[in-house]
Design a protein around this nucleic acid. Sequence first.
DNA 1: CTTCCAACATTGGTGAAGCCAACGATATCT
DNA 2: AGATATCGTTGGCTTCACCAATGTTGGAAG
Lengths: 158, 158
Amino acid sequence: MPTVRLRAMPVDDTTPTRLKGTPSWLIGQAAMHGHRILTERFAAAGARGYHYRLLAALQEFGPASQATLGRCTAIDRSDVVAALNELAAKGLIERSPDPDDRRRNIITLTPAGADHLDHLTAALAEIQDALLAPLSAPEREQLTHLLARVVAHHTTRP
Amino acid sequence: MPTVRLRAMPVDDTTPTRLKGTPSWLIGQAAMHGHRILTERFAAAGARGYHYRLLAALQEFGPASQATLGRCTAIDRSDVVAALNELAAKGLIERSPDPDDRRRNIITLTPAGADHLDHLTAALAEIQDALLAPLSAPEREQLTHLLARVVAHHTTRP
DNA sequence: CTTCCAACATTGGTGAAGCCAACGATATCT
DNA sequence: AGATATCGTTGGCTTCACCAATGTTGGAAG
């Protein structure tokens, strides 16, 4: 009684069509690759995603409280604490109490922090290029514009 | 001696321009919102991302081993184990030893699993719509196409 | 002035997701 | 037969997002 071998096995590395067409899957996959590239590249510089976000905010807006930093970098207050601890341990930022409001800490970017930020900014440029390698310049701008609208739609809702 | 109040404080919810222009940030933020919507919507159906991926693969390709499932859904073998445990506990899949290769398990989609997949597929369609709400139909296709090229570039490298 | 509420920094914990190392059992190749 | 590879499983690690509780402080209402 010979058994009929029905080979219904998926060919390896074949993504189900149910998935590979959905935007949320594509965005998620693209973000995954971007995150992986960024993590590796930043790890080589002794940093991680949160660090860059915070340093960039400090460089652009100047000294700020932790709560404010958390709001404009979209990082939870509790996670801001941990990230700033790490940055402070490396001398990249300084934490000093606000004399005008003793609940707040004033976070200041140190010169070393500014240097480190420049370093990370250069790395980030390479990361963009690696991530969007197959896209031409106008295509990259197109993608950026479309994504910006999507993100704006979901962040603008108080 | 009046103190000059230098207001260098960031306006809340203002994203640093260093970030809001970079594609990796935008992709990451878009993915975050998409992931949040998907997680909430799927949680209401008692599922999570991994479950849909696995069920979809099983529905499209038929019964398969865990390693194969992991490869074509981009889920680590060890995570496949946990996710399949959860699916099996709900009777959505069945795990049986492969008689031809006793290292393998053959994972089969049960009728209940197929029903659940249909339910999740409907939910996923709503998720796409919620995520890409501000975009027109041709714009969504444009975005999908651009992302597909980016993802393909990073997944195609043996 | 007191009372009450809101904001702040901090601690601690939860969960999804991705990744890696190791192990025993089994298949396959040499 | 022995070396090598695959498979399922366990356990652990990291990033990231989020939430609850606490004590301190500011500011507004009574």
